[in-house]
Every structure is written in C-alpha cells, then in structure tokens.
Design a protein around this nucleic acid. Sequence first.
DNA 1: TAAGGTTACGGCGATCGTAACGATC
DNA 2: GATCGTTACGATCGCCGTAACCTTA
Lengths: 299, 299
Amino acid sequence: MNLNQIELLRILQETELNLSKAAKRMHIVQSAVSRQLQLFEEELGSPLFERKGKKLIALTALGQRVMDEVATINQAKLNIQAIASDFLDCNKGTIHIATTHTQAKYFLPHPIQRFRAKYPGIRIYIVQASPEQLVDQLHAHKADIAICTEKVNEDAELITRHCYEWHHAAVMPKGHPLCEGELTCERLTAFPILTYSLGFTGRSAIERAFQQSGHQLDIILAAADTDVIKTYVHLNLGVGIIARMAYDSEADHGLVVRDLSHIIPKSITKIAYLKQNYLPLYSQHFIEELLVAAREISA
Amino acid sequence: MNLNQIELLRILQETELNLSKAAKRMHIVQSAVSRQLQLFEEELGSPLFERKGKKLIALTALGQRVMDEVATINQAKLNIQAIASDFLDCNKGTIHIATTHTQAKYFLPHPIQRFRAKYPGIRIYIVQASPEQLVDQLHAHKADIAICTEKVNEDAELITRHCYEWHHAAVMPKGHPLCEGELTCERLTAFPILTYSLGFTGRSAIERAFQQSGHQLDIILAAADTDVIKTYVHLNLGVGIIARMAYDSEADHGLVVRDLSHIIPKSITKIAYLKQNYLPLYSQHFIEELLVAAREISA
DNA sequence: TAAGGTTACGGCGATCGTAACGATC
DNA sequence: GATCGTTACGATCGCCGTAACCTTA
C-alpha cells in the first residue's frame, strides 16, 4: 500500500471510475494506473470494484468501506501539507470561499478588504455556487470555507458558526402604490413579485411565511442574483423581495426599500467548514474578520 | 510524502525518537531512515524535530501537529487492512482484550468459551494490565477491546458500552465472628481487612463508601488479584473484601461470603474501544457475546 | 473503429545496504 | 569506546512509459 494508490482510488471516484481519465489527472499513462490498481486489489485479497468486462462500473461492498478510509488518509495528507506551509510562511497561501452572489457582493467586500490589508500575500478565491452546492464544495476540497444562508444540513463532519441575522425587504420604484401605507401580506399578493430562485438567499423563508399566512405570492420572476431582480424592478415589472442588505441607498436611489421583518422571519447566515480540515492561521483570522463584520452589521 | 515516511514518524514516537531503534523495527538500516527523515523534512520545508547535536530530542511545534495527522493516517491504513482481511475470511483473525485479572478469571471464561465454539479460527489474546493502563493499551494498538471497572476517563476517541453491574462482598473463614449477625461498617472496621490495590476492581468505590460513613478500614494487605486475597483470608489474616463474582462456592468452600451491597455502592464494568478503529465482524460478535453474558449475570 | 482496459518489456529513478566518518556521552 | 547520526556510493527493486493486444459499444 502506498499513497499513490490511495490517491488513485480518490481520483477514480472523481472520474466515474474511468482509469484513463484518472491516469490523465495523475499525469501518468493508463497502463500504470491499471497496474497499480491490480497490485492494490491483490494486496488486499479481494476486488474493490465491480467490473463489467474490463470496465469498472461500481464499488464493491469492500470498496465502499475502503473509500471512507481513503478519504480520511487524503484529508490527513492535505492537512500535513497545510500545516507545514502554514508554518513556513503565514503570509502566503490561498483561501477558497464558497458562497452565493448575495454574500459575495453585499457582505464579503468589507471583511475581505480589511483582511487584505493585514494579509496582502493571501490570495482569495470566491467559488460561486448555488446554496445547495456549497457544502459539496467543502467535501470536494474545492473550498475551505462556505458562507451559507439557506439551512445547512446537520452534518457531523461540519463545523458551523453563526455569522449574522438579516431580514428581507421589499423594493419598488418611486411612486409605486406600496410605497405608502402599511405593508401587509394582502397588499403584497396584489402585485407581481420578483425574488430569488428556489433555494437562494432565504427564498425558503419567504415561502414558509406566505404559506403559513395562507396567501399566495404571484412570483413572475426568480433569479439567483439581487442585481437581476433590481434591474427588472426598475423596469416596473413588479415588487422585488430581496435581502435588506442588498439595497444600496446610493446605487439604488430610484428604488424605495421597505422592511419586511414583520412578515418574513429572519434569516441566519452561517460560516461552515470541515471539522477534519486543517485551516491555516490566516484562514482562522479571515473567519474572525467575517465575525467582526457580522457584529458591525448587527449593531 | 509516502506511507513509509509516515510509518517512520509513528515508530519514532514509540522509540524515544531513536533513529537506530526505529530502523531495527522497520527492518532497514539506520542510514535509510535517516535519509528518509531528511527527505520528509525537506519536503515540508521545516524540521519536525528539535535536535541536540545530531540526536533528536523532541518534536517541534510543527512536528506535534503533524504527528496527530500521522496517527490518523496510520489508523486509516490499519482499518483498510482490517476491513479487507475481514472480508477475506471472517473466521480468521485475532482479538486482543485488555483487562484485569478479576475480569479475565471471573467474567471472561464463559463468553470466551461460547465465542470459541462459534469462531474456532479466531485467536484470543488477553493483555493483562492495571486498570489505568487499559485505555493506553487501546491507544497504543496493543488491544482492540478493553474491559474496565474503574472509571474510564471521558475520552472523545473512545466508545464505552455498559456491560454489567456488581457488588463487593466480604469473605472470611468459617467460624469467624462476622459470619453471624448484621454486617455493619462498625463491625468491619474492627478486623484487619484484605482487599484490592488502589485503582483495582472497584477499590475506589470501597474507599468512597467508608470515607463517607466516617469509618476507617484497617487494610493490612492489598493485592491486584482476588486469589491472593483469598489465600491470606484462608490463613486467617483477616476479612477479605472482594468482588462478589470472585467468590466460587465450590473452590472457596472453606470461606463464608456475605454481601456488602448495603455498604458499598455498585461498581459498573464497561467495554471500551477506539471510535476510529475498525472492529472486524468477529470482534463485534465477541462484544455481543460479552453483553449476553453480562445479562445472564444480572438475571 | 473508437474508447477503455490488460499484458509484456525495457529504462530510469527512488530507496536500500555497505561502509567510512563525525559527534556526543 | 559505545551509541547515535550523517554522508557517499554502488546495487537493486519498483514504477513508469512504450507498444502491442483484447474487449465492447
């Protein structure tokens, strides 16, 4: 058994059990990976893969159990490297942040700006993904930190930290009837609504609130992206329901914003990362920076 | 990085950081391990060990963190091998049980006998150790399962399962004054007492019971081993306080046994094993067998 | 016939063993 | 001088790459 064989197994999982693709990913020829897999299965004494002819089509029961351990070893290997390079130079490295458009545009700018000032050598990559993919990005090691608003599944391998709470708001062009008077469920249902796609930025909270009140929203446009929504609100297509923090009093001076906290319950944005994943010091400091920014928002 | 280097680090920890001893344990020459360690440190970019001259004397901060990951990798490696050989033949293998004399002699015989009948191919090794060493045996991979009576530290890496409860009893030669009448703390303190060494077989429960009652036992002999205690009780040196199950009505017909459950609170015997350690099926069945035996005792 | 996998074989490099040397007690 | 570790160098074994072949869609 050696680490290359472990790596091979890991890569095979990511390449639909295709030996040729795995070989390319490992920068060696296909016959080499074939041989290594044979050697490993021989060493263990039983096959790890179900085969149809010569193709690998699935994991055997043994293979499934072994893959769990393979993932553990891979994680530990990455951790050793991360710990060592952390030790070498705390001021070099990268952070991959998995998050959505809303967070990237309306929450992250301040903390990232301050973090950059302290750690100019760290490269920050924002991995944009739909909320449901965020946690997958962590497991796939494509991101170190996820910033999620929609509910994070209770995952034993995840550490989640409360970040900040926020409410939705309605936006509409100046002069719109909803600019005046009390804002109720009834009045909202009378207008076409523009809001987030299912699964995005607290859309589920909107759903729940209106379902419970017995009213039905007439959602005529759903987007993953607040800017898209605002654009169409400007065009007078209807009333936008967006995250309150996504309203920018300067950029959006043509729009009126009205709080919806009495109608739609608060949403909670969290920070999540893998428990077994070693976070370099600078990543830990980055999280601190996020929490500071979160407190400022709440205050 | 490769698995041999990981293994080397693991072994260095077990050999007082002595490269020569590590080389012997790995069946290669000393110069080879020296070179491998250099290569690994070079790859990481910083030393893993503090050196005094050429000797390794301690782990660096980096080394300490890396060692945690090394342990994880090693565990996963062992798991892969265990899972595979489990898959190959469920009826071959070994179980190492860390336990004390009392359990080995008075609790284990029945369940082991029955287990042997079902799994004649499994070798069972009893690793006798003092109670405080039992958990260490697990961490050192010298035992798969520990059977402990004294309190097991709340260890996040450990799974502990309730096994059975039992009481202490007093034993004395026939005709001894304590054979008759009510058995109280007062009367016990009037005689020389023979019981377990500190830390063994519920001795701590005995201590606590008498401390709380305000009486002081006159313990003239303490042994790790019930047989030793009974031997001296036979010689009329005093009254023995032993685990009730260690009294054998046949072998000990010269002794009278009297229950002490009204004086000394119950002791609890538990089964413990490492959470991250893969237990072969037969080991899981062995634990089942222990639990069955435990229920029979309680009934 | 293209794509995926296996087998055979030669070459190269990683790692080992031998051996001589250096340091520390 | 005994123990422990490093360095140099030749030998070996493992692993890769080339290439020919097999199988299945």
